[in-house]
Design a protein around this nucleic acid. Structure first.
Lengths: 172, 172
DNA sequence: TATAACATGTAACAAGTTACATGATTTC
DNA sequence: GAAATCATGTAACTTGTTACATGTTATA
């Protein structure tokens, strides 16, 4: 995913950050949109530094572990601009992990299927609740969060329809 | 993705198939839901055979290349049943590659942003058209395809809203 | 007779994850 | 004094992709 690098550059454009700080922000504020693990983040930062997109400067508070504070370079800015434009016009089809099992739903009794889908629905609703409680972000970051919200709402509506179809089949 | 193995088992339950045949079917009939490449398919078949989930029997027509025809075993059937139940109650959050660029949309002029999103929309609409022209499948395979259709429609509606928001901003 | 379709694979690479390792400081 | 937080990483593994290799047969 090239967009992970775009994200890093986009965040560093606004503010110098060290790896830990980036990780924190992504896990707390952007958890609904992406899921970058710690080692991946450090790996990407090193890679981007080697490319000259960002530079490091060390910082230490007291005797705490050294912080490597990253800052975007002019080369990095150019990369950001071109990646942004490229990715903005691209539509990437998304595949749903949960689609495949759905194809074999008719292997189960309507009763069993309903029970499982109710479990799915609970998980979905709890994610929806989390989303609706996250603070409003400035600019189009909020648009990204809204997109995700729309998607979750569409999923909830779909699940409801599948469940009602199953109920109809049960009555026959 | 465990669901790829579920898919293979699910297809082989209905009919013995050789690798080439499986690939054809997935690329022609299920292209909208998954995207399994040839080497991945052969790799998975070998792995599943090693596990005892499927067995091979060779078949040759004339002097053509040998076909390895795969068939599900009782062990494979057990695996299918348990994977189906497990995956059916799981809700797997989906991340959208195209979300991240959206967060930085306000770095572009409304004009440029609109142009790019129109390009995205065209690609989306052409995928929608393909979907609406795929033949109806039996049973809940059709449900899977419908889910995908719902998703694409929600995406189209979202894109339209973003585009109209941009138009409103331009007028200010 | 060239090209597409049939049929199966290998080797090298890319991306990302898990589990592990290290050590300081703050909080309970 | 134990546990959580701060801070950065490495090594091994998993999964999947791209590009390449091979040879037959039907079709244009």
């Amino acid at each position: 995913m090239t967009t992970r690098e775009l994200l890093f550059l986009g965040l560093l454009r606004h503010q110098k950050m060290h790896g830990y700080q980036l990780n924190e922000f992504i896990q707390q504020d952007l958890a609904v949109c992406t899921d970058i693990k710690k080692p991946t983040a450090y790996y990407l930062l090193n890679k981007m530094e080697a490319r000259g997109w960002i530079t490091q400067s060390s910082e230490q508070i007291g005797n705490r572990p050294l912080r490597r504070v990253y800052q975007i370079t002019p080369t990095g800015e150019i990369a950001f601009q071109s990646m942004l434009r490229e990715s903005m016009q691209e539509y990437t089809p998304t595949y749903f992990e949960d689609d495949i099992p759905l194809a074999f739903l008719d292997e189960l009794t309507t009763d069993e299927a309903s029970t499982y889908l109710e479990t799915r629905k609970e998980q979905l609703l709890s994610e929806l609740e989390i989303m609706q409680n996250t603070p409003v972000h400035p600019g189009t970051v909020q648009w990204m969060l809204e997109h995700r919200l729309r998607h979750l709402q569409a999923e909830a509506a779909w699940l409801d329809e599948v469940l009602s179809r199953l109920t109809l089949m049960e009555e026959e």
